[in-house]
Simulated scan of single mutants.
Amino acid sequence: MEIVESAPDVLETQLAARLAQLRAEYGWSLDQLARQTGVSRSTLSRLERAEISPTASLLGKLCTAYGRTMSRLLAEVEEAPSPVVRAADQPVWHDEASGFVRRSVSPPHAGLRGEVIEGTLRPGADVPYDAPPVSGLEQHIWVLDGAVEITVNGQVHELAAGDCLRFRLWGGSRFRNLGEQAARYAILVVAP
């Protein structure tokens, strides 16, 4: 399923407005964006009006179309972070449909190329991304708790607590929790 219906919060409303703004900046109609992403025109329209909440997969498709990481897109709708990002101030985004929770530990910041994300996948969670948001994006994924199966550029990697996977992303990716407990990991992203 690509959508989650709920009352939008402030971040979702700002995200919807930013997505509509990006489409206008690119000069694309809803039909053109639908062809570009494989997402229906009606879903895109409802998303831009904040009538639905995007899933991680849906945001991944839009980020790919716009050449942005998910963190960069979310940072564009949030306040600029201070040099110190307190735990209570770290933006957290929930994708209830896929079982994915994303905490932006060190959000994108002007003049910095790296960021740190904490991901949590509930048991059975499966989050596929068709393509990278930015080709050649460097990532380092350090598993903190549990185990996670990560497919990168067609290669499957099974990681346990303490393991680290590092790569440049050129193709699709997939994050799956095949275990019986939540999997928690840190992602260090370095923009090309």
Rank of each mutant, 00 (worst) to 15 (best):
E2G: 12
I3T: 13
I3V: 15
V4W: 00
E5Y: 03
D9M: 04
L11W: 00
Q14I: 00
L19I: 11
Q21V: 07
Q21Y: 00
Q21G: 12
L22T: 12
R23E: 00
A24V: 15
W28Y: 14
W28C: 10
L33R: 05
R35A: 14
R35C: 13
V39Y: 02
R41D: 03
T43M: 14
S45R: 04
S45H: 10
A56G: 13
L59C: 13
G60Q: 03
G60N: 12
L62S: 02
T64A: 15
T64Q: 14
A65T: 08
Y66G: 15
Y66W: 04
R68H: 12
R72Y: 09
R72N: 02
R72S: 09
L74T: 08
A75F: 01
A75P: 02
A75K: 01
A75S: 13
A75T: 03
E76S: 14
E79W: 05
A87Q: 11
A88E: 13
H94N: 15
D95R: 04
D95N: 02
A97F: 06
A97M: 04
G99K: 04
G99T: 01
F100Q: 06
F100K: 05
F100C: 14
V101P: 01
S104V: 08
V105N: 03
S106A: 14
P108W: 07
G111D: 05
R113N: 10
E115W: 05
V116H: 09
I117E: 08
G119T: 02
R122H: 12
R122I: 12
D126S: 15
Y129M: 12
P133R: 02
P133N: 11
S135E: 13
L137V: 10
H140C: 10
V143P: 04
V143Q: 01
L144Y: 11
E149V: 07
T151N: 05
Q155N: 04
H157V: 03
L165G: 11
R166H: 14
R166F: 11
S173P: 00
S173D: 11
R174Y: 03
N177P: 01
L178M: 05
L178Y: 00
G179K: 05
Y185Q: 01
I187E: 12
A191Y: 08
A191H: 12
A191E: 07
